[in-house]
Design a protein around this nucleic acid. Structure first.
Lengths: 228, 228
DNA sequence: ACCTGAACACCGTTCAAGT
DNA sequence: ACCTGAACACCGTTCAAGT
């Protein structure tokens, strides 16, 4: 007599909660309640299972997040940019950035120890693309790794700062733009340029210059590598 | 009659717990137990006061951390670098980096919304130095702000990744160096350069190239600004 | 005015026990 | 074998009340 547990299973084993089911439920929570609400306990509740049961399928919270991100990169990070090595590096880094920036909760694991090592192949292919292009341009393998790492730091920093910045779309009130130095008057004699910038700062800081500065960074790094 | 510095219990009422006392106690916890243990509750216990009392002196946990960081930058961040604008930018960014990197717990607030706006004058002077030097070099005010912000992203990313990386000093075991792509064999036909790099990656990734890549970034950004 | 215990509303993780 | 309730050891923050 088969136990009436969860139907829609194949013949044989009673269908245990699967990895895929977990990831779908996790995405549902993120979409419905915001990613801050994605906790181990809530996820178990969403699946209708005990919190403990989740630990049979996921090592810990970090593991859950990494699995979620890997699934996401597998779906969004497909590229093989053409062109000069320099342009391939920029294109790969922009693709990496855009894929990660779309999921602000990625910020939580981006800087964890050994993060890159836990990435799946689609993400690693971006690393490969950058390292390969740098070597083709004339970098030594060591220089290529250092170049990738520098771009990675810049990218992670951009994503993390942006993820934590409240975007006040169209809010023109004086309370908007907390990221200005100037709501409390600053000493114009000590900090003349910041004082002169005044309330232009929030506007300038809101502009997206990631890709442009990335280009400058890549050019600077490639030029430096060529000098040695 | 001389009283102990921190009265335990209900002895009269010497001056209420001061901001300075709180910050000293916070630093004591960080030094003794590690910064992960610095919680509102523990800090109150360390001071011998009720958790609630702390909220009379500190708006919330984030405010506590920002106050702590501001005190730290006031003590460590004094500079007025000489030389060419380009070198002044590099020197200021390195000083900012070193000051923040010394306190890994800063990672917790570095990316919070409006963080820069909550900094004290010593920290703002670094921003002023970088913006002023960029303008002196020929940047427009907008370009100078963008330049600062790009360096900020790079710096924050470096600090955050490093702060979360376990440094296995002298650990030569195979388990060491989690940040390698290669403990699980990678597909050499799909990722040839990463495969060729092999176990060299952890060693290369451990090298500190912050200042060198920063120089390249600054050169790249200044060159790009001059082109427009 | 200054301070606080208790409560609220949560966390991630473990483990002995149940089915 | 698979699953789980209950417990452990915490969090940040609030509020009504005490001194």
């Amino acid at each position: 007599m088969p136990r009436p547990h969860r139907p829609r299973g194949r013949t044989g084993r009673p269908p245990a909660t699967s990895r895929a089911e977990i990831l779908v439920a996790a995405r549902r929570i993120i979409e419905r309640d915001g990613w801050e609400k994605l906790t181990v306990r809530r996820l178990a509740a969403e699946l209708g299972i005990g919190t403990t049961t989740l630990y049979h399928h996921v090592r810990d919270r970090e593991d859950l997040l990494v699995q979620l991100l890997n699934e996401h990169t597998e779906q969004t990070l497909r590229l093989d940019p053409p062109g000069e090595p320099r342009d391939r590096i920029v294109a790969a880094a922009v693709a990496m950035h855009d894929s990660l920036a779309a999921w602000p909760w990625a910020a939580e694991i981006l800087t964890t120890d050994g993060f890159l090592a836990r990435l799946g192949e689609p993400a690693l292919r971006v690393v490969e693309t950058i390292v390969a292009a740098a070597i083709e341009h004339g970098c030594s393998p060591a220089q290529a790794v250092h170049l990738f790492r520098s771009l990675w730091y810049y990218t992670v920093g951009e994503i993390l700062v942006r993820a934590h910045t409240v975007h006040r779309h169209g809010d023109q009130s004086p309370a908007a733009g907390r990221d200005t130095f100037f709501e409390t008057g600053i000493d114009a004699s000590r900090l003349p340029h910041l004082a002169a910038l005044g309330d232009q700062w929030p506007e300038l800081a809101a502009q997206d210059t990631y890709a442009q500065a990335l280009g400058a960074f890549v050019d600077g790094l490639l030029a430096q590598a060529a000098q040695r």
